[in-house]
Design a protein around this nucleic acid. Structure first.
Length: 844
RNA sequence: GCCGAGGUGGCGGAACCGGUAGACGCGAAGGUCUCAAAAACCUUUGCCCUUGCGGGCGUGAGGGUUCGAGUCCCUCCCUCGGCACCA
């Protein structure tokens, strides 16, 4: 019946017609009723993209295809798979683009989103277009602002002073990525640090729980490790070093270590209190509040200059490792609480105010950075830990940092192990009020303030009388006002504060004159809860519906890039944990399973716009079709590791789909099943179903595709036409990878419904997959000398007999004495043999 | 510097739990079909020696354990990704 033209595989036509049918029939979308009643809900999430002007990047397509394959696979196994997509459209890139091209983000973003939607449809993702999210939509960010208010109410949002990168020429705050070797990326002016008041979420309160929960979530190993290291729990102690005056005036000791004039001691944090006898000086961060108090008059000028220089460094430079450490002596001294020695106080920019107490005790003998510093400034480097085989006087040529050994030069603690020393010293100092055991985390609080335009305004009103007052929830959203030119001006105030009718408001609490917060929030806040919104987009009056949320969350499978291994994933875990504690969610981890995918490179090189080697998907899809493109992307390497896109390689998958098409077309008109199923092909089919099922389930897509290719090759070997029962299951196996062609072939095989409606994933019969004859490798002294075929499970004697009758094996055993026989059933037989002893003499 | 991942044919990559290294695909060579081209199909393809049978070598380098190592252990080299001098 089909016309001649209908017989040839035309991917573009097939794909267009099936996309239309999916839309028409709502194949991939849920109604509210369906969301409420789905019996086997499976929430398949992927990281939503930033809709750039360049269009969908292959990296995005790679990630989405891999996630979509998994979703379709689950669906064919009978799950109700919800697979939403959205747009993470706020942020710095739109602002930059706008400043460069003059296109306002409010025009740019809708155009980009429209283009992304077109491209996303084209790649054949199973997206539910009835449930999408756009973070710049006031109907979305209204709830982002609501979320801020919940955190504020529960004491998890607070204002603190914090440093930012400031470009004095652009008069604006820069992100770390906008600072290029200490200069502004736009104008090249040197960047400096400024301290400004900003909003923080107190994620550190959750540090311990965020760390503990890592033990029971099913995530990629690398991602778990990254989170573990990022949170960075370290056990140690705070030690107090009483001030001891300057060179001129001796100090007097009392208590209290509050920063400022009255303070009389420096508190440091250390993980190695056992090395305290080796602390020969103390270093303060240049910003430390005690610097003024300890600095002597002689040193004041030098110290002031050094602090100036530090301030002039940008945040990126501060954190970079420099070989040569710098610092200056303050002229002040303090007392080592363990040894009682009077030791100098320095300041140096390798000590950061943001970590621990902003002060360290320097133990040059046992810390590499302190060693370098002491070496540079000729400070003493005593040894206080001896490794096995070393003594108290063994010279140190480098810092000995290993946490094992014995204490030396440490008074009455000599001879204790590192562990014992830690305990004893902290206990004794604590008894004298000079120490407390403490756990610190390297995780900082989450700064969500952005001094920018393109983001959701933070819903706070500042009132002279009442302080910061939350915007009443009924007044949400606080709509971002349209500012045509949001460039900063000489006034140095935020662009939002120039919109007076927006900026000036009555205080919701007292009614007096007040002003709105002009910072917008971090885009990481937008993405910290978007997965809660997707299934509830049908509800305009609540962020997430409790019933729907209970049915669909937590997310069953989340696939995304490891570039978000830390921040995004950690922040969303924190938000969910906080909402859980507020009683708004009944789970505390958002993602049951997370898998990080790899990166895709091209012809061995990283893709970048500047190199001009970026893959542009549209022409490839036009030429080969989305199905071929998808199969190729999944074939070129293990999904979790990424792979190398080689332009010519796509012809392999293309040919495969062609052959599959031809095999179906060759039999589609046949009335009923032919009877010529080849037993060998049948066996291979069952093996293939087994392999593909296992491998797709564990994201080993490349080998799953290889197995399918191998099977099709076998079914068509010698020009044979596969029978219907041989080819139909393959159509199903291919479907998650190449959904359009699978639908078309499924229809041609006589099925009315979509291949994705109903549990069409084929099952295999282990009995039919079982191998009956094994090929056993025969070795003589570990070298393969032949192969024999033996029935599966054949015993040692039988295999030995077969092996010995193999001529080449027999030849190698001639004149040898077999000492041992290793038999690995169904795999291998190894004769361990030596030259028979009897033969004397030599031979050439 | 630290953390993480990884080094296998001309190329991308396979290889269960230590058991025939190189599946699958690209590329290359030869062939079939065709007026021709494309597509498709068939054969060969790790390197070296050999007409053939067969043999030797071979998974970044060097050692080790083992009947047997791409896989386990030690030392070293290189590549990629991430980063925060975190005390």
């Amino acid at each position: 019946m089909p016309a001649e033209a209908d017989q040839a595989y035309d991917p573009v036509a097939v794909e267009a017609s099936w996309r239309a049918r999916w839309d028409r029939e709502g194949t991939n979308s849920f109604t509210l009723e369906e969301l409420r009643t789905a019996e086997r809900p499976f929430y398949n999430l992927m990281m939503f993209p930033y809709p750039s002007a360049e269009g969908l990047h292959v990296g995005n397509i790679y990630a989405f295809t891999g996630a979509d394959v998994f979703g379709r696979f689950k669906r064919m196994q009978g799950h109700d798979v919800f697979e939403p997509i959205g747009f993470d459209a706020f942020g710095i890139h739109s602002e930059n683009f706008a400043l460069k091209t003059g296109v306002h983000p409010t025009e740019l973003i809708p155009a980009n989103v429209a283009n992304f939607r077109r491209q996303l449809r084209r790649i054949g993702g199973m997206f539910d277009w009835e449930h999408t999210v756009d973070t710049t939509d006031p109907d979305y960010y209204r709830w982002t602002q609501w979320l801020f208010l919940q955190l504020f109410r529960h004491g998890l949002a607070e204002q603190k002073e914090a440093p930012v990168n400031w470009c004095p020429s652009c008069m604006t705050v820069l992100a770390n990525e906008q600072v290029i070797v200490g200069a502004c990326e736009r104008c090249g002016t040197g960047v400096e640090q400024r301290f400004i008041r900003q909003w923080f979420f107190r994620i550190t309160e959750y540090a311990d729980r965020l760390l503990r929960n890592l033990k029971h979530i099913d995530w990629s190993d690398t991602t778990l490790k990254a989170q573990y290291n990022w949170i960075g729990r370290s056990e140690g102690a705070e030690l107090h070093f009483p001030l001891a005056g300057t060179d001129r005036e001796p100090g007097q000791g009392d208590t209290g270590d509050e920063p400022g004039a009255g303070a009389t001691r420096i508190t440091v944090f250390t993980t190695r209190p056992d090395t305290v006898f080796g602390a020969t000086y103390v270093v303060l961060a240049p910003e430390h509040p005690l610097v003024d108090a300890v600095t002597s008059d002689e040193c004041r000028e030098v110290v002031g200059a050094y602090r100036e220089r530090t301030r002039a460094k940008d945040l990126v430079a501060r954190k970079k490792v420099e070989k040569r450490k710098t610092g200056v002596f303050t002229g002040g001294y303090c007392i080592n609480p363990a040894s009682g020695d009077r030791i100098p106080v320095w300041i140096a920019d390798y000590v950061l105010m943001g970590y621990g107490t902003g002060a360290i005790m320097a133990v040059p003998g046992h810390d590499e950075r302190d060693f370098d510093f002491a070496d540079t400034y000729r400070l003493p480097i005593p040894r206080v830990i001896a490794a096995p085989g070393e003594g108290a006087d063994t010279p140190l040529s480098i810092a000995y940092e290993y946490p094992t050994g014995t204490l030396v030069n440490s008074g009455r603690y000599d001879g204790l192990s590192v562990e014992e020393g830690k305990k004893a010293i902290v206990a004794d100092l604590a008894a004298r009020g000079l120490a407390e055991a403490k756990v610190v985390f390297r995780l900082h609080d989450w700064c969500i303030s952005r001094q920018r335009y393109w983001g959701p305004p933070i819903p706070i009103i500042h009132c002279g009388e009442c302080g910061p007052v939350p915007v009443p929830e009924d007044d949400l959203p606080v709509v971002l006002p349209h500012v045509e030119d949001f460039r900063p001006d000489e006034t140095g105030v935020s662009p939002l504060s120039r919109v007076r009718e927006w900026y000036e408001v009555a205080c919701p609490s007292c009614g007096g004159d007040a002003t709105r917060e002009t910072d917008v929030s971090d885009t990481f806040l937008d993405s910290a809860w978007y997965f809660l919104r997707y299934p509830s987009t049908d509800f305009p009056d609540r962020p997430f519906d409790p019933g729907i949320t209970r049915r669909w969350l937590p997310v069953d499978c989340y696939i995304g890039g490891n570039e978000h291994a830390v921040l995004h994933l950690l922040y969303s875990r924190f938000i969910v944990m906080a909402l859980h504690d507020m009683g708004l969610l009944d789970f505390e981890e958002p993602y049951d399973q997370f898998r990080a995918h790899g990166l895709i490179i091209r012809e061995g090189a990283k893709m970048s716009k500047s190199k001009g080697n970026v893959i542009i998907p549209d022409p490839i899809i036009e030429r080969y079709g989305a199905d071929t493109f998808r199969v190729y992307l999944m074939f070129l390497g293990p999904f979790v590791e990424g792979g190398d896109y080689q332009d010519q390689g796509i012809s392999g998958p293309h040919g495969f789909l062609h052959r599959l098409w031809e095999s179906v077309v060759a039999i589609e008109d046949e009335a009923e099943a032919r009877d010529d199923i080849d037993p060998a092909v049948e066996q291979k089919l069952h093996q293939t179903i087994q392999r593909v099922t296992e491998q797709v389930g564990t994201l080993r897509y490349n080998t799953a595709i290889a197995a399918m290719m191998e099977y099709l090759n076998a079914a068509r070997a010698g020009g044979r036409t596969p029978a219907r029962a041989e080819i139909e299951p393959l159509v199903c196996l291919v479907a998650p990878f190449a959904p359009h062609i699978a639908e078309e072939l499924w229809r041609r095989l006589g099925h009315e419904h979509s291949i994705f409606e109903g549990a069409n994933w084929p099952s295999f019969d282990p009995a039919r997959a079982a191998v009956r004859v094994a090929r056993v490798a025969v070795q003589v002294n570990g070298r393969v000398r032949g192969t024999v075929s033996a029935p599966v499970g054949a015993d040692r004697e039988a295999v030995v007999a077969l092996a010995k009758s193999e001529p080449n094996v027999a030849r190698h055993l001639e004149g040898m004495e077999v000492r041992r026989i290793i038999h690995v059933p169904d795999r291998l037989l190894n004769f361990v043999a030596a030259q028979a002893a009897a033969v004397g003499g030599t031979s050439g």
